[in-house]
Simulated assay, not measured.
Amino acid sequence: MADDTALAFQHPEARSRAGGGAPIHDRISLRDHIVEVEIGAFQPERGRTQRICFNVVVEVDKPDTRADDVDRILSYDTITDAIAAELKAERINLLETLADRIAARILAAPQALRCFVRIEKLDRGPGALGVEIVRSAADRPVAADAAETPRPLIVLLSNDAIASPHLTGWLDQLAARLPVVLTVGAAQGAVPRSASPAAQRRIDLLAIEQNAWILAGRDRRCLVVNTRTELDWAMRHGQMTVWAPSKIVLDSPGAPSVRAGDAPALAAWFADRMQARALLAIGPDAPDTALPLVRADPAADRLPDSP
Rank of each mutant, 00 (worst) to 15 (best):
D61A: 15
P298I: 01
D61Y: 10
E38T: 06
R140A: 12
A187D: 02
E86A: 07
L178P: 03
V155H: 02
L95W: 04
R193N: 13
L291K: 00
T241C: 15
Y76N: 10
P165N: 07
M235W: 14
R201V: 03
P110M: 08
M274Q: 10
P192V: 11
M235F: 09
H25R: 15
P253A: 12
H11A: 07
P245E: 08
I79D: 09
V249R: 00
L122T: 04
N93V: 10
I34W: 04
D219C: 10
L205Q: 08
A109N: 14
G40Y: 06
G127I: 09
G130R: 07
I28A: 04
R201M: 11
D139T: 00
C115I: 14
L87P: 00
R27Y: 06
R135Y: 12
R135G: 06
L266Y: 02
P253N: 03
A260W: 02
L266N: 02
D204L: 04
A286P: 12
D3P: 15
I214R: 13
R101Y: 05
E96L: 07
A175G: 09
D251A: 12
A147I: 06
D272T: 14
L94S: 01
R124V: 14
I106N: 07
A199C: 07
Q111G: 10
I119Q: 08
H33A: 08
D305I: 13
V131C: 05
L87I: 05
G254M: 13
T227C: 11
L205A: 08
F54R: 02
A234Q: 00
R31N: 12
P245V: 04
D145M: 14
P152H: 02
C115M: 07
Q111I: 03
A263E: 01
G185T: 11
A296H: 11
Q275D: 00
S29T: 07
Q50S: 09
R295E: 15
R101T: 00
T97W: 06
S246P: 09
S164D: 00
R51I: 05
I28T: 06
A67L: 11
P197K: 03
R236C: 01
A144G: 15
E230H: 14
A299Q: 13
L303S: 10
V242A: 12
P141M: 08
D219M: 02
D3Y: 12
D139L: 00
I208R: 15
L215E: 02
L279Y: 04
V184D: 09
H25A: 14
S194L: 14
Q43H: 13
I52F: 03
A278I: 02
A18W: 07
M1K: 04
A84C: 00
I102Q: 12
L266V: 04
A278V: 05
D232Y: 06
W233L: 10
R101L: 11
S252F: 01
R151D: 01
P245T: 09
R72C: 14
M1C: 03
S16D: 06
V58L: 02
S158F: 09
V225H: 08
E38L: 00
H33D: 15
D68P: 04
D32G: 15
V131I: 11
E38V: 02
